[in-house]
């Protein structure tokens, strides 16, 4: 599946009566939903099958539509990884995640940990808002600058 296919899919969905569709093809899962409250968020794509050595193709495909979403809705921002490492959604393996989708997030609140070589980087939110989506699964590798979360800014 390439970018053009994804674009076609979005167009088909937006011109139809369907409000949500989920497709899995060649290791890439795409979920498209059009909720009335978020009219400018056309597509969210995750690559859950991205393996330890990284499936670059699926990663790239997943980035582009997200950027489009951000451009169209200035109130939704991406929180990016400051370094290469492993993403952890909770402070310890036995504790519950720092945040889950739909949570209200305050400024300075911890969102996740990125680990590289026993260096634990606890990522804090610079903004107040609502967590729209977690883009990375617990334990998965992340790249420098890779989006980790979508946050809707709340005034």
């Amino acid at each position: 599946m390439n970018y053009a296919d994804i674009k076609d899919l979005i167009q088909i969905v937006s011109s139809s009566e369907v409000t949500e569709v989920e497709v899995e093809l060649e290791g890439v899962r795409i979920k498209i939903s059009k909720h009335a409250s978020q009219p400018h968020l056309p597509a969210i794509i995750t690559a859950p099958n991205c393996s330890q050595d990284g499936n670059q193709a699926s990663l790239d495909a997943s980035l582009q539509p997200k950027r489009a979403a951000v451009e169209e809705n200035k109130n939704i921002i991406e929180i990016l990884s400051p370094m290469v490492g492993t993403f952890y959604s909770a402070p310890t393996p036995s504790s519950s995640p720092f945040v889950t989708e739909g949570d209200k997030v305050s400024q300075g609140q911890s969102l996740c940990i990125i680990e590289a070589m026993k260096l634990m980087n606890e990522i804090e939110s610079e903004y107040q808002g609502k967590l729209i989506q977690s883009l990375v699964e617990n334990g998965q590798p992340v790249e420098y600058g890779q989006p980790l979360f979508l946050l809707e800014l709340v005034e």
Partner: peptide, 24 residues
């Protein structure tokens, strides 16, 4: 012992844990 545990033979003598706050 990579990345930064300090061992003498098969036994650990020192552990190092670094915590960081950073943006990109």
């Amino acid at each position: 012992k990579w990345p930064n545990d300090i061992f003498v033979g098969t036994k650990k003598i020192c552990g190092i844990l670094t915590e960081l706050r950073a943006d990109p």
